[in-house]
């Protein structure tokens, strides 16, 4: 799965690091480090983290976009 954190918004509340510790970790007191492409098994945790973020800084790939990823991967880019 894919995600991105808007680190301009992030204020280091670290809710995500509690809810999805395999994906989000604090690096120092305030800086967030995360895996932008975690395993799908993390989806529930990531969605919970995104929901809990007090500044709504986490964007998770939209379901319809993810569904077309299959087609995307197989598509010829020379179209």
């Amino acid at each position: 799965m894919r995600l991105v954190v808007d680190l301009n918004r992030c204020q280091g509340y670290a809710q995500c690091a509690f809810l999805a510790p395999d994906v989000f970790t604090m690096h120092g007191d305030e800086a967030l480090m995360y895996d932008p492409g975690p395993d799908d098994a993390q989806r529930e945790h990531v969605l919970r983290a995104a929901e809990a973020c007090p500044v709504k800084a986490i964007t998770v790939e939209a379901a319809d976009a993810a569904a077309s990823a299959q087609a995307r991967a197989g598509a010829s880019y020379a179209a």
């Binding site: 991105v4 932008p36 964007t59 998770v60 976009a65 598509a75």
Partner: peptide
């Protein structure tokens, strides 16, 4: 080394139904 370089593809906010001419 915490994240492989190919894990950085941006999430899509929605499907965009585009013709891609990459490379």
């Amino acid at each position: 080394g915490k994240v492989p370089a190919d894990h950085t593809a941006l999430p899509r906010r929605r499907a965009i139904d585009a013709q891609w001419r990459l490379g």
